[in-house]
């Protein structure tokens, strides 16, 4: 287990990880619901694929078998455990 919780926003590109937990209280109700609908859940495999720009644009990540784009604020509420390979 990682000692300091790492968020999806900080996860290095192409580093495989699993979702450790989601800070639902930092998200609005529709955001939380849409995240669940897109399959964000504890234990699911996740990976950052692309970051739009240095200027704080959205990120694209793989969640399960799906690719999802989300904004950094939401990514910051998703805690991840990097897989050591």
């Amino acid at each position: 287990m990682a000692t300091t919780p790492l968020s999806l926003e900080q996860l290095p590109q192409r580093q495989r990880a699993t979702v450790a937990g989601i800070a639902w209280d930092r998200l609005t109700a529709p955001e939380g619901r849409r995240l669940r609908e897109l399959g964000f859940d504890e234990g699911v495999g996740i990976e950052v694929l692309h970051r739009a720009r240095i200027g704080g644009g959205p990120i694209a990540c793989r969640i399960g078998r799906m690719t999802v784009a989300l904004r950094r604020r939401v990514a910051g509420a998703i805690h991840v455990d990097p897989l050591t390979s």
Binding site: R34, L35, P58, T67, V68, L70
Partner: peptide
């Protein structure tokens, strides 16, 4: 109102 954000599946 609050910005609804951007969350989209990329097919």
């Amino acid at each position: 109102g609050a910005s609804s954000g951007f969350m989209m599946e990329m097919p």
